[in-house]
Design a protein around this nucleic acid. Structure first.
Length: 552
RNA sequence: GGCCCGUUGGUCAAGUGGCCUAAGACUCCGGCCUCUCACGCCGGCAACAGCGGUUCGAAUCCGCUACGGGUCACCA
């Protein structure tokens, strides 16, 4: 038995499986030619972040566009920063906002697939088997340096203006003889396992990033940590092992990883793994003091997916907005295919922007209004209630009191050729429909300054004598026009504009008075429909209340 | 500071040497549409970071400068 084999055995006495065993356990996937296997691998250190969601969406689109697989792996290797319930929150957010996951964790507490475990904390033996094999070949070694030693080395490096890191002459434990190392291990000294890097600063490596293009960097020469002192792997090592064993073909992740690529390339090479393709996604930014910066969990409420849920943005709105950022021709495609399934859009990593986009709430709102305008009344009713049950329970109760009535409210000016585009998110709905519910109705009868209360009252008195609830929109308007002349208003807007001094106002003013009397507002959707929905009783009652108010 | 990456209107962006007197979308401002608002339509404001080079010709290729971003952990 070689000295390195002895060392490996001393370090991992309980590991008897070999890499070959795992290679056989997780065979090549049987997928059609060109199918991409991608993944999202979040760390459960907090709630679901917009950036993670965005990257997930890009992964989802990439997998679907190639009939591939999108899986979810939990990177729970950092026990210090882990947050209780973090994983479930991330999964729930993905589900709620319409991203389906094919494999791994697909929903809170639901795991499927043959390439698991999909949780790194459950894969310790696998990582250790590979590390053991590396140690046997003298490609990795234990390092006993204390935090203080490393700190001192860093200070020295800074002082000498050298690069920081554990490499070259600074890699003290690398130069220990195997006998010395073995003795320390056997003496029970704590250690981490480092890669014995064969790279050099002088060498340049090149790789093709599917989003950023060709990138050239110095080779990695740092003896990076593979296994932490608790036997748990670092991200770098787990990435290599997991994505190899799970047969990931394309690693699509945030671009903060670019600088680690040399480490990853080296790891794949040392381990004899086939290199996956990389695509680094630029972060979504926010503006502050004239500068861009990444969305911050602490400073920006829009960073959390909870924000969109609370505000009541439909999942489709968020997805379509993010898709617009990801592939800007999506917008044109959507215009040309208003009802098509977005999965049939030809998504392409190569169409993604190289630099980070500023988050634009105005744009999201616009997209969202369009999304909601396309929904039918039943869908809107159902979605609003679902939102309200969670965030505005009293409003939900009100909406559910008479479902037919509520659906009727949302049916106004909807489902026609030019549906209204005035609801952007569900938390705007309560105010938008308030005059349909006595409990919410704000009896605000303030007139425009150009209309005298006495005239307004006269208009309503006249209108009550001709009001016919059975009238359709055209007849309704004809009726409104018919009372204009006697009251001194022009039934024709153009005639009024030609000679404003001849009239008190025009038919628009007359309908405004009625509108205010009925809804308490100057602007509303089609008044005739509103009156029909409200019913004769309510209409007459509001008309009389207004008359009384304006006559006194 | 070292190493990477980026920079087209306020924002998202198309553009890969001549089709660019630079597309489209959002925002904003006008106008039109037999009632208001919204929608829709028409129109408007507004950009190739700077400087040098290569070329008959540059937003597009090269270099430098400036600015911005990322990264330098037993965190991901």
């Amino acid at each position: 038995m070689s000295i390195y084999a002895q060392l490996a055995q001393a370090m991992f006495p309980n590991i008897d499986k070999t890499p070959a065993y795992y290679e056989e356990l997780y065979p090549e996937r049987q997928l059609k030619e060109g199918a991409r296997v991608v993944r999202i691998a979040p760390s459960p250190t907090g709630y679901l972040h917009l950036g993670t969601f965005f990257t997930s969406m890009v992964n989802r689109m990439t997998a679907s566009a190639s009939d591939g697989v999108f899986f979810f792996r939990l990177e729970d290797t950092d026990k210090k920063r882990e947050v209780e319930g973090g994983a479930d929150d991330i999964l729930k957010g993905m589900n709620d906002f319409g991203l389906t996951i094919d494999e791994g964790f697909v929903a809170p507490g639901v795991v499927k697939g043959d390439y698991g475990p999909y949780q790194q904390s459950c894969r310790a033996e696998i990582y250790q088997a590979y590390v053991k094999c590396l140690v046997e070949q003298n490609l990795a070694y234990p390092c006993f340096c204390s935090e203080e030693q490393r700190q001192a080395a860093r200070e020295l490096q800074e002082q000498k203006k050298d690069r920081t890191g554990y490499y070259g002459e600074y890699a003290i434990c690398r130069t220990l003889t195997p006998e010395e190392t073995l003795a320390k291990v056997e003496a029970g000294q704590p250690y981490v396992v480092r890669l014995r890097s064969m790279g050099s600063e002088q060498n340049r490596i090149k790789y093709d990033d599917m989003i950023k293009g060709t990138i050239e960097m110095p080779e990695n020469d740092e003896d990076i940590v593979l296994l932490k002192s608790d036997g748990i792997p670092t991200y770098h090592f787990a990435h290599a092992i997991d994505d190899h064993l799970m047969h990931t073909t394309h690693v699509i992740r945030g671009d903060e990883w670019i600088s680690s690529v040399p480490k990853h390339i080296q790891l794949f090479k040392v381990l004899g793994f086939k290199q996956p393709k990389y695509a680094h996604v630029s972060p979504i930014m926010v503006e502050e003091n004239g500068n861009k910066r990444k969305l911050s969990k602490r400073k920006d409420p829009q960073a959390a997916m909870h924000f969109y849920a609370q505000q009541g943005y439909p999942a489709d709105s968020v997805l379509e907005y993010l898709l617009t950022i990801a592939n800007s021709d999506f917008e044109d495609w959507r215009r040309a295919n208003p009802t098509a399934d977005r999965m049939s859009f030809k998504f392409n990593l190569k169409k993604m922007s190289v630099s980070g986009a500023l988050f634009d709430l105005d744009k999201l709102n616009d997209v969202s209004k369009t999304v909601i305008a396309r929904m039918d009344a039943e869908t809107v009713t159902q979605r609003v209630i679902a939102w309200a049950e969670e965030y505005a329970p009293e409003f939900a109760t009100l909406l559910k009191r008479d479902m037919a009535y509520t659906t009727g409210v949302f049916a106004i000016d909807r489902g026609n050729a030019k549906p209204r585009k005035d609801i952007g998110k569900w938390n705007e709905v309560q105010d938008y429909v308030s005059y349909f519910f006595p409990e919410l109705y704000n009896n605000d009868l303030e007139l425009p300054e150009t209309i005298a209360p006495a005239d307004a009252a006269a208009i309503l008195r006249a209108y009550t004598t001709v009001y016919d609830p059975a009238q359709d929109k055209d007849a309704w308007f004809t009726t409104v026009k018919s009372i204009c002349a006697d009251l001194g208003f022009s039934p024709d807007v153009k005639a009024y504009k030609a000679d404003p001094t001849a009239f008190k106002g025009h038919v628009g003013d007359v309908s405004t008075v009625i509108r205010i009397a009925i809804t308490g507002r100057r602007n509303t959707p089609d008044l005739c429909s509103i009156m029909q929905q409200l019913g004769v009783e309510t209409v007459m009652q509001r008309l009389h209340t207004a008359i009384e108010t304006w006559e006194n």
